[in-house]
Design a protein around this nucleic acid. Structure first.
Length: 264
DNA sequence: GCCTTATGTTCAC
DNA sequence: TGAACCTAAGGCT
């Protein structure tokens, strides 16, 4: 599930697996072969995440930029790794573990300038301690675009995807159609603080959980441990009020909300 | 087994 | 606005 939490979890895992180790890098599929040759045998120094972007650092100063897109995955298996199966864009193997990267939107070498350009076009990331949420607030409060669209825009907030977008708006009781300039500081702060909590939980658990055990809705509330309130629940009853969840496509992405819990 | 769908982004028109 | 990218899971038969 590649929203920001997945990438931050991978960055932490790769730090643990490969940091300060000489690693073997290859591209069984071939599309990253030249670059992999250059990296092979270098010392892996750091992994970090910016929104949905993963950066690997090597002691030569080389960097690899990975974006999973919709389909990408990074496996984690014990060394020695078995022969690659299928289309593996990049294989990295350290002392105890290795990983195969499949189906990414991006897997490329990066320069310092590339990284600077990437970071400067991203909004604040709720999973980073150095995030400046006021940048996002400024942008939202100047915009006539719908809040539902703004939250999906990586230039506004980095790392949110379709699930967190729908769920955080539900939890804040904000209708996704509301204009950015009408959101207000109070609702923005509630959304931001909630994202910080929910996405950190997502990193810990490795999945998106927006109905926490402590979110008690009384009798008739969540049963059988559902993980989300509205995402992919069009036509089903709201877990809080029982009204029918709505769904429609906004800017090419499926959007879900409860019209009575999120009236405006 | 086959079909649909998907947590995302970029580019062409 | 739509297509392309190109993988895997789930629902269906």
């Amino acid at each position: 599930m590649p929203e920001g939490h997945t990438i931050h979890r991978l960055a932490r895992l790769h730090q643990r697996r490969f940091r300060n180790q000489q690693v073997a890098v290859s591209s069984p599929q071939g599309r990253f072969a030249e670059e992999a040759d250059e990296l092979d045998g270098q010392v892996f120094t750091k992994a970090e995440a910016w929104g949905k972007h993963l950066i690997h650092h090597y002691d030569s100063g080389a960097m690899v930029h990975v974006h999973l897109g919709l389909f990408g995955r990074f496996s984690d298996v014990k060394a020695p790794m078995p022969p690659p199966v299928g289309e593996v864009r990049m294989r990295i193997e350290g002392d105890t573990h290795g990983g195969d990267l499949r189906g990414p939107t991006a897997c490329e070498l990066f320069t310092e300038e590339d990284l600077d350009a990437l970071v400067s076009r991203l909004g604040p990331d709720p999973l980073r301690a150095d995030a400046e949420p006021e940048r996002a607030l400024r942008r939202i409060s100047r915009s006539t675009r719908a809040v539902g669209a703004l939250l999906m825009d990586q230039k506004v907030i980095a790392g949110i995807g379709n699930v967190y977008r729908a769920e955080v708006l539900f939890r804040a009781g904000v209708n996704p159609m509301r204009e950015g300039k009408a959101l207000g500081e109070r609702d923005f702060n509630a959304i931001w603080d909630d994202l910080v909590d929910l996405m950190a939980l997502g990193v810990r658990k490795g999945k998106i959980i927006t109905i926490r055990p402590e979110d008690d809705h009384g009798p008739g509330g969540p049963r059988g441990r559902p993980r989300n309130y509205v995402y992919r629940r069009r036509g089903q009853p709201c877990r809080v009020c029982g009204n029918t969840i709505l769904g429609e496509v906004m800017e090419g992405r499926n959007l879900f909300w409860c019209p009575s819990c999120q009236p405006d």
